[in-house]
Structures are given as C-alpha cells and as structure tokens.
C-alpha cells in the first residue's frame, strides 16, 4: 500500500495504490473514486460482536469498507467526511496508537483495530467517550482530523496539556490524567476549557486545530428552524 496526500490543507484526499491482491480497510463511505480493478466489500471488522461493540460503544461505523485489488493493481481515492487534514502513520508492530472515534480513515490490512474501554474518569471527561479505537499491527494508518493536525512530540516525562475535545490520536506509551483547566471549579467552566488532559511522555500526541463540538454549537445558530 503506497499512499499520497493530494491537495493538503482543508480539503485533502488520499490516493492509495494497491498491488494485485492487496486490500485495505477504510471508513465506511470513504471511497471517492477507484480503478475498475478494485472491488469494494463491506466487512464487519472483528466479527459481528466486534462490529456491534464498535458501533454502539465508539460510535464508529458498523461496517468498514474493504477495498481489494482483486483483478490487478489499481488505485483508490479516499476522503473523510469533515473538512480537515489527513495524516499518514507507519506502524511497525511495536508502536500502538489510541485514536478517537472519528479519527480513523483507512488502514493497511495488517492494522488491527480494537475498541478499548477507558477508565471511568477518562471516559466521562476526556471528551472521547468511554471507548476509543486502539490501532496496532504493522502497516500504513491514515487518520483524519477536523481542522489541521498538529503533532506534539513528548520526551520521556515531558508533560503537555491538551483541551480534551482536540485530541485525535496518541501513542500508547504516553499516559494522561484528566484535570480541571483552572484551579477552581467555577473558573474551569467559565474559562471555556472545562477539563483538560495532562499528557506525559514519551510519545506522540496528534491534536486537531478545531473542536467539532464547539463548531456544531456555533453553526446551530445559523440553521433556519423549519416549522
């Protein structure tokens, strides 16, 4: 699987080249265009129960798309639903990433996707929900964000504070705690930050430059109310 980001910026697409017989997983509905040699199948990754738990627990789609180059090599164009950047990560079998539920766009066949339960406080307050996707295995992983993607590199024991709804993905060698944004409870809410995640290295944290929840709240005021 060779991948290339087209039109980097707010409205990117990713072009994926597949050799004959190769297949990749993609978020349901991600395919924009593809060569006629590629077959699109829907697949319940992780079996029926796994798909069911992913659907109900993480809010991810029940089916993933499988794009299979069954009749010879070909390419496919994939795009996320929301405007925002795409990032390509290479997993080497050792590093693992936690990905928030809307962050997954596509992955090579060697990528293993699991739903993972977070601790109660993280589930309630991190803004990611109780379940996140854990990506492991070997191969290319394509993530998407809302807005631009920013990579934070953390040295061992280095700390960084991230607003909870701006998280996209983070490596499993990092750990984080939920904290109030300011020392007081009321100030935490009125500052508009509420809760933040204090990340501790080593590892990488990918954040998005826009907050989908806040954007939704902002855009709601412009939607005409139908009678």
């Amino acid at each position: 699987m060779k991948s290339e980001i087209l039109y980097p910026g707010a409205f990117p697409m990713v072009r994926v080249e597949l050799t004959a017989g190769e297949h990749i997983k993609a978020e349901s509905g991600a395919m924009v265009a593809c060569s006629p040699t590629i077959d699109i199948e829907s697949k319940m990754e992780g079996g029926f129960l796994g798909a069911l738990s992913r659907k109900f627990l993480t809010g991810e789609k029940f089916f993933f798309q499988t794009l299979r180059a069954s009749r010879g090599p070909g390419e496919a164009l994939l795009a996320p639903t929301v405007p925002g950047e795409i990032v390509i990560l290479e997993l080497d079998g050792v590093n693992e990433y936690m990905v928030q539920k809307d962050g997954f766009l596509a992955g090579a066949d060697g990528i293993v996707i699991e739903s993972k339960m977070q601790s109660l406080s993280r589930g309630l307050l991190s803004g990611e929900g109780f379940f996140i996707l854990k990506m492991s295995g070997k191969g290319t992983l394509v993530l998407n964000s809302f807005g631009a993607i920013h990579k934070i590199e953390l040295k061992p024991d280095q700390e960084y504070i991230v607003d909870n709804s701006h998280l996209v993905a983070w490596s499993s060698t990092t750990s984080y705690n939920i904290e109030k944004a300011t020392s007081g409870w009321i100030a935490s809410v009125t500052s508009g930050e509420g809760f933040v995640c204090r990340f501790r290295g080593p590892g990488l944290v990918y954040i998005q430059s826009r907050n989908p929840g806040s954007f939704g709240a902002w855009i709601r005021q412009f939607i005409p109310v139908s009678e």
């Binding site: 590093n95 953390l154 040295k155 061992p156 490596s171 060698t173 290295g201 080593p202 590892g203 990488l204």
Partner: peptide
C-alpha cells in the same frame, strides 16, 4: 521502543 535524545519522538523500534 527506545526513547532518548538520539531517537525520534515516537520512539525507535
């Protein structure tokens, strides 16, 4: 994964 000044931030396998 090995972390240190001489390795990338994501760790060296």
């Amino acid at each position: 994964l090995c972390f240190g000044h001489n390795h990338p931030a994501s760790g060296a396998p």
